[in-house]
Amino acid sequence: MWALAGFLGLTLLVGTVEGIATIPNIKSWYDLLPHPPLTPPNGVFGPVWTILYIGMAVAAWRIWRCGDVLGDHRRALTLWGWQLAVNALWAPLFFGLHRPAIAIGVILVLDGLVAATILAFRRIDRIAGLLLMPYLAWSLFASYLTVGFWWLNR
């Protein structure tokens, strides 16, 4: 269970850091921008990301506890770590530095890493791969929003 707590702590730490970059910029910058269609209310993002981070942590823990199944677990967890690191870059770029154009590049890399992580996880543990599917869906939606914000505010 310590490993699960570690994965949860790491993902929620990333979420906290992103919140620190995001929250001060919501009223002073983000709310003043024209928003793309389908942009959810601000109160949706925190709960959705919290659920996604918990799912990401549980998925990684499931892979970790499998051991070296097919020799893939180290590669799968490395991909997971990379996607988490890239995820941590998006909010500081978009909200903190107000750079949606750069954030587009970051989120497109994130989309690819999440998809690759799902495939790697699925080979080892089907449930772990499935746990990341909502994250990929939300990341793709966030990609649409990021491009939309850039387009409407360039």
Results as ranks from 00 to 15, higher is better:
residue 100 P to N: 06
residue 113 L to W: 06
residue 112 G to L: 05
residue 109 V to N: 00
residue 86 V to M: 06
residue 109 V to D: 03
residue 87 N to R: 01
residue 86 V to R: 06
residue 117 T to W: 06
residue 87 N to P: 04
residue 94 F to R: 02
residue 112 G to C: 08
residue 84 L to S: 13
residue 95 F to T: 00
residue 104 I to V: 09
residue 62 R to L: 15
residue 123 R to L: 10
residue 77 L to H: 10
residue 87 N to T: 12
residue 101 A to C: 09
residue 82 W to Q: 07
residue 91 A to V: 08
residue 115 A to G: 09
residue 63 I to V: 07
residue 63 I to Q: 03
residue 118 I to C: 05
residue 59 A to F: 02
residue 102 I to G: 00
residue 80 W to S: 06
residue 79 L to S: 05
residue 91 A to E: 15
residue 94 F to L: 11
residue 121 F to D: 01
residue 108 L to A: 07
residue 97 L to C: 02
residue 120 A to G: 03
residue 74 R to M: 10
residue 60 A to C: 15
residue 124 I to S: 04
residue 64 W to N: 10
residue 58 V to N: 04
residue 114 V to Q: 02
residue 76 A to Q: 09
residue 61 W to I: 04
residue 87 N to Q: 09
residue 115 A to S: 06
residue 91 A to G: 06
residue 80 W to Q: 01
residue 77 L to Q: 07
residue 62 R to G: 07
residue 120 A to F: 05
residue 54 I to F: 14
residue 89 L to P: 08
residue 105 G to L: 07
residue 57 A to D: 03
residue 93 L to P: 00
residue 118 I to Y: 00
residue 116 A to F: 11
residue 112 G to D: 07
residue 69 V to L: 15
residue 91 A to F: 08
residue 103 A to Q: 02
residue 81 G to S: 09
residue 85 A to C: 11
residue 124 I to D: 04
residue 121 F to V: 11
residue 79 L to A: 07
residue 110 L to V: 05
residue 121 F to A: 11
residue 123 R to Y: 02
residue 112 G to M: 06
residue 89 L to Y: 05
residue 115 A to Q: 05
residue 122 R to T: 15
residue 116 A to G: 13
residue 86 V to K: 03
residue 119 L to W: 13
residue 92 P to L: 09
residue 57 A to H: 04
residue 60 A to Y: 02
residue 108 L to H: 01
residue 75 R to A: 05
residue 111 D to E: 12
residue 69 V to I: 14
residue 65 R to M: 10
residue 85 A to K: 09
residue 63 I to L: 09
residue 65 R to F: 06
residue 97 L to N: 07
residue 77 L to A: 09
residue 113 L to K: 01
residue 86 V to T: 12
residue 75 R to C: 08
residue 116 A to T: 08
residue 89 L to W: 08
residue 94 F to P: 00
residue 92 P to E: 10
residue 95 F to G: 01
residue 63 I to R: 00
residue 111 D to P: 02
residue 114 V to M: 10
residue 85 A to Y: 07
residue 113 L to A: 02
residue 115 A to C: 13
residue 65 R to I: 12
residue 106 V to A: 06
residue 66 C to P: 01
residue 69 V to K: 15
residue 77 L to M: 06
residue 100 P to I: 03
residue 103 A to T: 11
residue 62 R to V: 14
residue 102 I to H: 02
residue 81 G to L: 12
residue 69 V to H: 04
residue 96 G to V: 08
residue 86 V to L: 11
residue 104 I to P: 00
residue 107 I to V: 05
residue 97 L to Q: 05
residue 64 W to K: 10
residue 88 A to W: 06
residue 95 F to N: 01
residue 111 D to Y: 02
residue 92 P to M: 09
residue 110 L to F: 13
residue 66 C to G: 12
residue 71 G to E: 11
residue 63 I to P: 01
residue 60 A to V: 11
residue 105 G to K: 05
residue 90 W to D: 06
residue 75 R to N: 08
residue 84 L to W: 11
residue 73 H to L: 05
residue 94 F to H: 04
residue 115 A to P: 03
residue 65 R to W: 07
residue 101 A to P: 01
residue 60 A to M: 12
